[in-house]
Simulated assay, not measured.
Amino acid sequence: MSDDNNTPVFQIQRMYLKDMSLEQPNSPGILLEQTQPQVDINLNLAAEPVADGIFEVAVTATVTTKVGDKTLFLIEAKQAGIFEIRNVPAEQLEGIIGIVCPQMIYPYLRAVVSDICTRAGFPPVLLSEVNFQAMFEAQQQQRAAMAAGADATSLPN
């Protein structure tokens, strides 16, 4: 079998926890609070080529839990994967990187966040399911709207 075979290739090379941070800046005093904390969860997706046909895709969750205006705990976890993606049309590559890869990574990230909460002495934070396809499509629409806006502002008066 030669290297110039045009058969599409999609393989997971490795899954790994790339970064993990836990902060409890107001402990131990805030641990005595009886007020229900507010939980804010943000997700971020990043992807970059590592080598020819090899991509790193990372999903980051930032979980901020506050009681009033004081932080109870802050967790930032970045779960990543290295994927081999070859001989795939460019229009499909974005979807694979923006939808398929994060869908494979996310369950690991959910487990890590839940586990670190428990190990820190708190009830687990369960990250809800994410529709990466809807997220990807919304980003595509936002990009198209921004491009249309940039085109409109660059038109001569």
Score class of each variant (00 low, 15 high):
1 M>N: 14
2 S>C: 08
2 S>V: 00
2 S>F: 06
4 D>F: 09
5 N>A: 10
5 N>F: 02
5 N>S: 09
5 N>I: 03
5 N>H: 07
6 N>H: 11
7 T>A: 12
16 Y>E: 03
18 K>S: 12
19 D>Q: 12
20 M>G: 06
21 S>M: 05
21 S>V: 03
23 E>R: 08
23 E>T: 09
23 E>D: 15
25 P>F: 11
28 P>T: 05
28 P>E: 10
28 P>V: 08
29 G>H: 09
29 G>Y: 09
29 G>R: 07
32 L>W: 05
33 E>L: 08
34 Q>N: 12
34 Q>G: 08
35 T>K: 14
35 T>R: 12
36 Q>C: 00
37 P>F: 11
38 Q>Y: 00
38 Q>W: 02
39 V>L: 01
40 D>W: 01
40 D>P: 00
40 D>T: 12
40 D>Q: 13
41 I>F: 06
41 I>E: 05
42 N>V: 06
42 N>F: 03
43 L>N: 10
44 N>K: 03
44 N>C: 03
44 N>F: 02
44 N>H: 02
45 L>G: 01
48 E>W: 01
50 V>S: 10
50 V>A: 13
50 V>F: 08
54 I>G: 00
55 F>M: 10
56 E>I: 05
56 E>T: 08
56 E>G: 04
57 V>P: 04
59 V>R: 05
60 T>K: 08
61 A>P: 09
62 T>V: 10
65 T>K: 07
67 V>F: 06
68 G>E: 05
68 G>F: 07
70 K>H: 07
70 K>N: 13
70 K>D: 13
70 K>Q: 15
72 L>M: 02
74 L>T: 01
74 L>F: 09
75 I>K: 08
75 I>Q: 12
77 A>D: 04
78 K>F: 04
78 K>R: 09
79 Q>T: 01
80 A>K: 03
80 A>P: 04
81 G>H: 04
82 I>K: 11
83 F>R: 05
84 E>I: 14
84 E>M: 13
84 E>L: 11
86 R>L: 00
87 N>G: 02
89 P>E: 13
90 A>N: 02
91 E>D: 14
96 I>S: 08
97 I>V: 14
100 V>Q: 13
100 V>T: 14
101 C>G: 06
103 Q>G: 10
104 M>E: 14
104 M>D: 11
104 M>R: 12
105 I>F: 11
105 I>D: 02
106 Y>I: 07
107 P>V: 07
107 P>Q: 06
109 L>H: 00
110 R>L: 09
110 R>F: 11
112 V>W: 07
114 S>G: 14
118 T>N: 14
119 R>W: 03
120 A>E: 12
120 A>G: 15
121 G>K: 03
124 P>Q: 00
125 V>W: 06
126 L>S: 13
127 L>R: 02
128 S>V: 13
129 E>I: 09
130 V>T: 10
130 V>D: 05
133 Q>R: 14
133 Q>A: 14
136 F>G: 04
137 E>N: 10
138 A>K: 15
143 R>N: 15
145 A>Y: 08
147 A>C: 08
149 G>S: 11
150 A>I: 13
152 A>V: 07
153 T>H: 11
153 T>P: 14
154 S>Y: 10
157 N>R: 10
